[in-house]
Computed example of a mutant assay.
Amino acid sequence: MREDELTIGAFARACRLSPKALRLYDELRLLRPRGLLASADGPDDAVRALIGAANDAGGPDNVSCVVADVVDRAA
């Protein structure tokens, strides 16, 4: 596991979802945003790509997405 990755339990606690729900989302291929975010031209493009991927994977019509750029001001 890479240093910047979380275990499924830690991620579940952080997003307040059960590990079972996260495993289901993974099976539906809804938890694979890394490549989409890396290739996006900005937040709006990233949101469109993530929502498109969720819909392509069978997500409902009311998919929502928020993209935030977190900056470490101390660095």
Rank of each mutant, 00 (worst) to 15 (best):
M1A: 09
R2S: 12
R2Q: 09
E5R: 07
E5I: 00
T7L: 00
G9V: 04
G9P: 00
G9R: 08
A10Y: 02
F11A: 14
F11T: 01
F11K: 01
F11N: 05
A12Q: 03
R13G: 09
C15K: 08
L17H: 11
S18H: 01
P19G: 04
P19T: 05
A21H: 07
A21I: 01
L22R: 03
R23D: 12
R23L: 05
D26S: 13
L28A: 15
L28S: 13
L30I: 03
L30Y: 12
L31A: 07
L31W: 06
R32M: 09
R32K: 12
R32S: 15
P33N: 08
P33F: 08
L36G: 14
S39G: 09
A40R: 05
A40V: 02
D41I: 00
D41M: 05
G42Y: 05
P43F: 02
P43V: 04
P43C: 09
D44F: 04
D45L: 01
A49K: 14
G52A: 01
A54W: 12
A54H: 14
N55G: 11
N55A: 14
D56Y: 08
G59D: 03
G59Q: 02
P60W: 14
N62W: 08
N62A: 10
V63H: 06
V63E: 08
C65W: 04
C65Q: 05
C65A: 10
V67A: 06
A68Q: 15
A68E: 15
D69W: 06
V70N: 09
V71M: 11
V71R: 15
R73C: 07
R73K: 08
